[in-house]
Amino acid sequence: MRHIISVLVRNHPGVLSHVVGLFTRRSYNIESLAAGVTENPEITRITIVVTGDDRVLDQVMKQVNKLVDVLSVSDLKYDQAITRELAIITVKTTLQTRGAVIEIANVFGAKVVDMSEDTITLELSGTERVLQNLVRLLKPFGISEMARTGMIALAMKSSEEQ
């Protein structure tokens, strides 16, 4: 099973090595890891997507929580979290296919951020599933390069209150 773990850490040089080092040391598999500052510049939020059963998740959370720099760890349930990922995708195009690519982009609400004779670069933020769908539809045209940020997430306040 996949889990999104949201970790708040003290923001200082070296903290990422500690977190990443833990994952390699304990040989947990992570799918993605994204880090960025929070509303408080002294605190960084790291969002980690891991795969494993509940026992693995339990261990990951406890071990992460043990790190001195970690302020809190929470398991964001998929259905109770707002998740987003940003992708930048460069697609190969010809005069014939350019229109079709732009049309797909429009349907997804992706922005065209660059264009050349034979490529278009799109930007899209959305849930993982939306990104996957876009990638699937663009693939036949030929994706020449892609960069994804990895998932970031916050707990959904409205679902907590229910």
């Binding site: 026992r55 339990d58 261990q59 406890k62 071990q63 929580n65 043990k66």
Partner: peptide, 10 residues
Amino acid sequence: DPAEVGKIIQ
């Protein structure tokens, strides 16, 4: 150490 609980054995 909470991380030791359930690490090897339930």
